[in-house]
Design a protein around this nucleic acid. Structure first.
Lengths: 256, 256
DNA sequence: GACGAGTGTCCTGTATACAAGACATTTGTC
DNA sequence: GACAAATGTCTTGTATACAGGACACTCGTC
């Protein structure tokens, strides 16, 4: 039965609106900007009429909004408000947010709280430091796992096969065009697991290094990370002090 | 036809899952904390079996999460990530966020960006100031409109009937038990509209005053507000300077 | 001004998603 | 340890939500 249902052509069959909604939201998230309803239907390979009614319903509920100028639809105010509930009430997120604020204040450096969600790496919360840095507005965006120190920690404990399965080939290419060898990457994951932290230099850009520490869940696996975004030209002592402070936060958040 | 459909008993009829989903999310937002599936179904007067399948679908999609300890469901990570898209991409929200950060930095005072959504007042974004204040974590929560200076501006231009319609009776009662007379409230709205800003003292608590300025939309109505949360014991000059600075932000955000 | 491509709305038949209810477990209380 | 009140899963029939397609508009483009 499952075999048949898995095999049948998914292209054109009646679909529940729940699934349609989930697909719409996931598409918009990946797309990153507004899209007209017609184009949305085409992109999802969904019937136009159904898409129109669904989008209208979601828009009326405020989950989506239609740009008044070009009629493109995108996430709405309500979606934002609903989402805030998560970061406010979720136990780990709540504690992590406070700790990131504290860490940024004490060290003066940009601090972040990061997680993996369905194989994608995301900065969940960030507090900028005192340095006159470019403000990265990457909060909430999906970032290739190999680009980050946190990513190496989050994959700790996974087998080579799992890792290869999880990492898309193009994600191994850095913004400047360099390519990370998969063997180096897997070695870095093992190192990070052994050391209990991870430091990466000049990955996303040449002037920053990233120092990340794991946050362990109840079952002992790495549930999230907390990390510092630093300039590359720090002394060994400075870096060591920051690492000790970061590991303190890491332990604090790991112990339930 | 519409009359009949409006009149029929809404309690027990087949409902589309879109509507069920919207009701679930809206309920959770109002409820403010997790709830078991059974209780959710009862609260929404929805069939248990449908509620289970829907909640399971939404949980698998990450829009909802089930607390591992007591099986309560609440908003999930994905919902948060989707919501971040709004604040990142929405034109007004994007500009307002930057301006709030700038305002907080320049003045050293807690600054907020507020909106009305389906008759409820909400702090959309906040940046705390330098004062050792209690941090209000009311971002994203629904707050009674009469408790706030921004609320008075957001109702500008509405008729008495509309205002009475919009304000629930219990919302006129302040946290300390005092009750705002509806006539005073309506007068305050007119004053705020005339002055182009609004100052309220000791409404939510005795030691703070709130200074709010309107952000006008393309059609000339008050679309949002930007405001400062201040201690009550400021001098006239200090207050005047802050007001001028705030009105500058207000104009900046109003002009598309 | 004819044409193709797109948008948004409405109608209709039927495949199927939903509601109801049964069942096996778990949980808490006396 | 008996009982009531939950939870979570599964099956089934039928009311209806969805897909398809038609229609009337609005664009640009040649």
């Amino acid at each position: 039965m499952t075999v048949i249902s898995d095999m049948r052509d998914t292209a054109s069959r009646r679909e529940r609106s729940v699934d349609r909604i989930i697909h719409i939201l996931e598409f918009l998230h990946g797309h990153g900007e507004g899209i007209r309803v017609g184009a949305l239907a085409k992109a999802l390979n969904a019937p136009r009429s159904s898409t129109y009614t669904l989008v209208n319903d979601l828009t009326q509920a405020g989950l989506l909004e239609i740009a008044s100028d070009d009629q493109r639809i995108f996430f709405g105010k309500r979606m934002y408000l609903y989402g805030l509930n998560y970061i406010r009430e979720n136990s780990l997120a709540k504690r992590a947010r406070l700790e990131v604020d504290r860490l940024a204040k004490e060290t003066g450096e940009t601090s972040e709280f990061c997680m993996l969600q369905s194989g994608r790496y995301t900065i969940m919360y960030m507090r900028p430091g005192n340095r006159p840095f470019r403000i990265s507005s990457a909060v909430g965006l999906q970032i290739p796992i190999p680009w980050t120190a946190s990513g190496r920690l989050l994959l700790a404990g996974k087998s080579r096969a799992e890792i290869e399965e999880l990492i898309a080939d193009e994600d191994l290419v850095l913004p400047d065009g360099r390519r990370i060898a998969i063997d180096d990457f897997i070695r870095a994951i093992a190192d990070a697991q052994r050391d209990g932290y991870c430091l990466t230099k000049g990955l996303v850009d040449a002037v920053t290094q990233c120092l990340a520490a794991p946050i362990y869940g109840a079952d002992g696996h790495v549930e999230a990370t907390i990390c510092l975004v630093l300039p590359v030209d720090l002394s060994e002592e400075q870096l060591g002090a920051l690492r000790d402070r970061l590991l303190q936060s890491s332990r604090m958040l790991s112990t339930q």
